[in-house]
Nucleic acid binder design. Structure first.
Length: 977
RNA sequence: GGGGGUGUGGCGGAACUGGCAGACGCGCUAGAUUUAGGAUCUAGUUCCCAAAAGGAGUGCAGGUUCGAUUCCUGUCACCCCCA
């Protein structure tokens, strides 16, 4: 992108005297100004040394567990987005302590992950050292913000003492099977073993058990990139090439660890009722789980003349648990469209493919499947790519009407969803329709849209269009005229009784691919038994608890070696091949994904130093669940779903007492960069109005009409103004030229990242905290504004001057601060402020809480007498928001100790109301007059007062009063004509 | 394409269950004070009309209501997530 940067004018940084103590003791008129650079580190040291925020060992009274989503300690350090949520939980925590609650407010680090490993590869350095350095930076930055964390509980997922228990939980998953009858995870030893397996011996029994474990091995296709020497996530592959570097990516099956999260799909969905989360997040999780109901149906693929025999046998024997070789089993959510199934499609990975492919089709099918192997699931499902496929040469028989239908292979069907095969109903499914049109396959409409629908019935019936909604059945034999829902029920009954199908539930949720071919992750605590020749016997042995943790071994280097084997294969033999009881084993060399550590960290915070267990059950009962969990919406699905899954398994196995981990969840909004004004110029340096521009495929700004590339000019805000009649911004110098105005996501490349360290240095941590809370509602995304930071700093300066004598040479109370009792007005102001601020903290409405305190200060700076009895409670109200300044002023008011546990001020409702109210009087809904009257007048009194008002009386002259609406203390509306 | 969210002054945003639209902050204007202002204080600041009087006004178009930023229907724009 071609960019011209115009000069930007931001408010100048404040001059802050760096040596406060000296300057104020000096001669002359130097005054004790508010100086956060001196105050803040001093109080941070005080809290640290006195362990002010140490979590009490016993919960007395009500508890509060306020948790932040712990950060990944990147090399970039803290971003201004981090302190937004952290300040919110800190305010809630500080407020709760003052309310007498016992508070747990911890912080830690999610420190495994790719960047540290990439750094290690690049510099041939230790990922651990790099990670620890970053953590130290984060801790320093977090302490600079004055958060009231209990730092004695700091944990990192990379701590050996921490991941010991991550490994232990993995072994719990490994030791658990899901009992569908009880809908519950149970010990593998309680899994019923069928008699024939038992008879086959111990090994057979173990293999049988292995099939049911929640943690199990599987050969799953992964995205392997030889050039990068790594396996990539689906998100990292675009059009068959790696997102980074553009190298080819292959799909290949590798032995992987999987977690059977699908077993918990129903509970993960239904238990969302129990939690206080934003509806949007709940829906996102529901959609991700993607529960659908429908039917599984067997299509016969044997010889046509055997169809009747097969059907009869099937009816006799019942629907087989697993599909037999002579059928193709499909899953459909619309069994009511069975009569419209005109062909079938199997995924290129389907295991029946060889049996179904005829000799003359074999080359085409083979080529097609090989090509498909190069594509990601994501690309295969992309609506923009044209559907492709190839005929196998075989036919299946539709069990409902005995019609033969051709079987095709197409990559728009995924092996991982349903049974990996579908019955295609082109008249009623958009993808099937597109495919049928491409390959000229028959289209039969079997659902008639409702009468009021806009669908052209004739075109639907002739196969020109597709309709995927519900309606009434046509062309469906005995089921004609049934509405879709009733048809579904009936046909499932029919399929069931003839045992060619059955009702089935399916999920979009896949089992969780839990292993990575990476170094910087938790090793699996699993040993693979080897035979004499050094080959795996298939028997696995969990590393016993007393041998945990399995620490990461030393490896020589982290360079990729071009083979899809994990880096841990490079460990020395002593680590790799342990011998136990004379048997040789090989350690599992995959590592766990980054999600693992974040799945349970909230539990460890409760008992972070426990060496004997992952958590003390008594403490768990005291503290769980997390009362308030704040973090970014980017974790709406994966982290929150994975953590809930682990929690439920631990709950089922009796280690926890709550079925859900996070009672209340709040997503903070994104903080965007400062608003930018952008204008465009063509190559002749002529301005181009914004509505004539667009972005092309390469994300360059071009002229819409010709595609000519344009210069993008960042404007000084002074150069733009709002259009006279309209909603657009235009150039001041040329009103015809529209310019863009918007805030962008902060990014290095855009250069609009705000560093919290810089804000703290120039304005102070209290200002940063206050500004982030004052910007707007917590959950909303909002643009940063340097001027806004300056604004809240002005407020803190005013608070300071309200209490501090600036004319003095020493730090001293303002002479206006007196011991007199407050006036009625002053008391009312205080009680109103206490009420609003208290309520706003409870509803997390921090922006309005701050504006209330601003009103308080505006009021009292005008008062020549500011009674201590009013000032002291105000400082307490301010303290959760601006703790450093509050402590300083609290001390100045003559208090010896920290205010962190001072009782939160209480208000008296009767003292919050004014004696007089101003009541507007409307005629026909328009305000015509206002009267100031005593509170609590009745409707009748209000009516009389309104009609006697001289302005109103004049306006009503000549009109007939039809009706009067009087709302006590609110308004009077007169309907007249 | 599907889902979610948001539209209120020059800007960020207030407005409880329908009841004075624009709290609070920024910015801007004028004045005071100051060696100075990027400090402080005072006053003003939704728009239209020179001002008063008055009128319009919460993306747009309708509806319900004595009364709608708030409830209903339709519609447009932008943002986020998924595909």
């Amino acid at each position: 992108m071609l960019t011209w940067f115009a000069c930007h004018r931001y408010p100048h940084p404040r001059r802050i005297p760096t040596e406060f103590a000296k300057t104020r003791r000096g001669k002359g008129n130097i005054v004790p100004k508010y100086n956060p650079a001196e105050i803040e580190p001093r109080w941070q040291r005080f809290w640290d040394e006195n362990k002010t925020f140490k979590t009490p060992t016993e919960v007395t009274g009500e508890k509060l567990y306020a948790l932040d989503m712990f950060p990944y300690p990147s090399g970039e350090g803290l971003h201004v987005g981090h302190p937004e949520g952290y300040t919110a939980t800190d305010i809630v925590s500080r407020h709760a302590r003052m309310m007498g609650k016992t508070v747990l407010h911890p912080m830690g680090f999610d420190a495994f992950g790719l960047p540290a490993e990439e750094h290690a590869i690049k510099h041939n350095a230790s990922p651990r050292e790099f990670t620890e350095k970053n953590i130290n930076t984060f801790v320093r930055q977090l302490k600079d913000l004055g958060f009231s964390y209990d730092w004695d509980r700091q944990i990192s997922t990379t701590d050996v003492d921490y991941f010991k228990w991550t490994q232990w939980i993995f072994l719990v998953l490994f030791d658990t099977w899901f009992d569908p009858d009880q809908q519950k995870g149970r010990p593998i030893s309680e899994l019923p073993i069928p008699a024939e397996i038992q008879e086959a011996g111990e090994d057979a029994t173990r293999r049988y058990q292995d099939e049911f474990r929640l943690a199990f091995e599987s050969h799953a296709p992964v995205n392997w990139c030889p050039a990068l020497g790594t396996v990539l996530a689906n998100e990292e592959v675009v059009d068959g090439l790696s997102d980074v570097g553009g190298h080819p990516v292959q799909r290949m099956p590798l032995r992987q660890w999987m977690l059977r999260i699908t077993a918990y799909a129903d509970r993960l969905e239904s238990d969302l009722d129990q939690v206080d989360w934003p509806e949007g997040i709940k829906k996102l999780q529901c959609d991700w789980i993607g529960r659908s109901t429908g039917a599984e149906v067997d299509f016969f693929i044997g010889a046509t003349d055997q169809f009747e025999t097969w059907k009869n046998t099937q009816t006799e024997k019942g629907f087989p648990r697993n599909p037999q070789d002579d059928v193709l089993r499909v899953y459909t959510t619309r069994p009511d469209t069975l009569y419209g199934a005109t062909y079938m499609v199997i995924a290129p990975e389907h295991n029946a493919i060889e049996a179904l492919t005829t000799a003359d089709q074999a080359p085409a099918v083979k080529k097609y499947c090989d090509d498909a192997a190069m594509k990601s699931d994501r690309d295969r499902q992309d609506d923009r790519t044209k559907k492709s496929g190839v005929f196998t040469g075989s036919y299946a028989i539709n069990p409902i009407n005995g019609q033969p239908v051709p079987i095709w292979v197409a990559d728009y069907v995924l092996i991982s969803y349903g049974t990996g095969a579908i019955m295609a109903v082109p008249a009623h499914d958009a993808r099937d329709f597109e495919f049928a049109k491409t390959y000229d396959l028959p289209i039969i409409a079997v659902v008639q849209p409702p009468a009021k629908s806009e669908i052209d019935l004739e075109r639907l019936m002739t196969g020109e269009i597709c309709f995927s909604g519900v309606g009434t059945a046509v062309n469906s034999g005995p089921y004609d005229e049934l509405p879709t829902d009733a048809f579904k029920t009936k046909i499932i009954e029919a399929l069931d009784s003839s045992a060619v199908g059955r009702a089935a539930v399916n999920y979009k949720l896949r089992d969780w691919l839990f292993s990575r071919q990476r170094f910087w992750g938790e090793p699996f605590p699993i040993l693979h038994e080897l035979d004499e020749a050094g080959n795996r016997t298939g028997i696995m042995r969990p590393v016993p608890l007393e041998s945990l943790p399995v620490d990461l071994p030393f490896v020589e280097d982290f360079q990729p070696h071009g083979r899809p084997e994990p880096p841990l294969e490079k460990a020395d033999d002593e680590w790799l091949y342990p011998v136990i009881d004379g048997k040789k084993y090989k350690r599992e060399t995959n590592t766990m994904p980054q999600w693992a550590g974040s799945c349970w960290y909230y539990l460890r915070f409760i008992d972070p130093h426990n060496a004997a267990a992952f958590i003390d059950p008594e403490l768990e009962k005291q503290w769980m669940p997390v009362d308030l969990y704040i973090g970014g919406a980017e974790h709406a699905v994966l982290h929150l779903l994975y953590a809930r899954f682990w929690h439920k398994v631990l709950f089922d196995r009796g280690h926890l007492h709550t079925p859900e981990p996070f009672k209340k969840l709040v997503n903070q909004g994104m903080i965007l960069g400062d608003v930018e004004f952008t204008a465009f110029r063509d190559t002749n340096e002529q301005w181009v109005s914004a509505e004539l521009t667009c972005e092309n495929d390469e994300r360059k700004t071009v002229l819409k009409s010709t595609g000519e590339e344009l210069y993008v000019v960042k404007l000084d805000p002074e150069q733009a103004e709002k259009e006279k009649d309209g909603d657009n911004f235009v150039l001041k110098s040329d009103q015809q030229i529209r310019v863009d105005s918007r805030a962008y996501k902060m990014s290095k490349s855009r250069g609009n990242v705000v560093n919290p360290d810089v804000i703290i240095a120039e304005y102070g941590a209290d200002s940063l905290r206050l500004y982030e809370m004052f910007m707007g509602p917590l959950h909303q995304s909002k643009p940063w504004s340097m001027a806004g930071v300056n604004g809240v700093r002005n407020f803190l300066d005013r608070v300071w001057r309200m209490l501090v004598e600036e004319k003095a040479e020493e730090l001293a109370l303002n002479s206006a601060v007196v011991d007199h009792p407050p006036t009625d007005d002053q008391v009312r102001m205080l009680h109103k402020t206490i009420k609003s601020v208290s309520k706003d903290i409870e509803t997390l409405g921090f922006n309005t809480a701050i504006s209330r305190m601003m009103e308080f200060v505006n009021f009292f700076t005008k008062q020549s007498e500011r009674p201590k009895a009013v000032m002291a409670p105000f400082i307490l109200l301010l303290s959760p928001f601006a703790p450093h300044m509050s402590e300083e002023l609290w001390k100045l008011l003559g208090n010896e100790s920290s205010l962190a546990y001072e009782p939160w001020p209480e208000f008296d409702e009767s003292l919050t109301v004014d004696a007089l109210v101003e009541v507007p009087i409307q005629i026909m809904g328009k305000i015509k007059s206002k009267v100031s009257i005593e509170r609590g007048k009745s409707k009748q009194e209000l009516e009389t007062i309104a009609l006697q008002d001289p302005k109103i009386a004049a306006l009503l002259d000549g009109l007939t009063v039809r009706k009067i609406i009087a709302v006590p203390d609110k308004l009077v509306n007169i309907v007249a004509n």
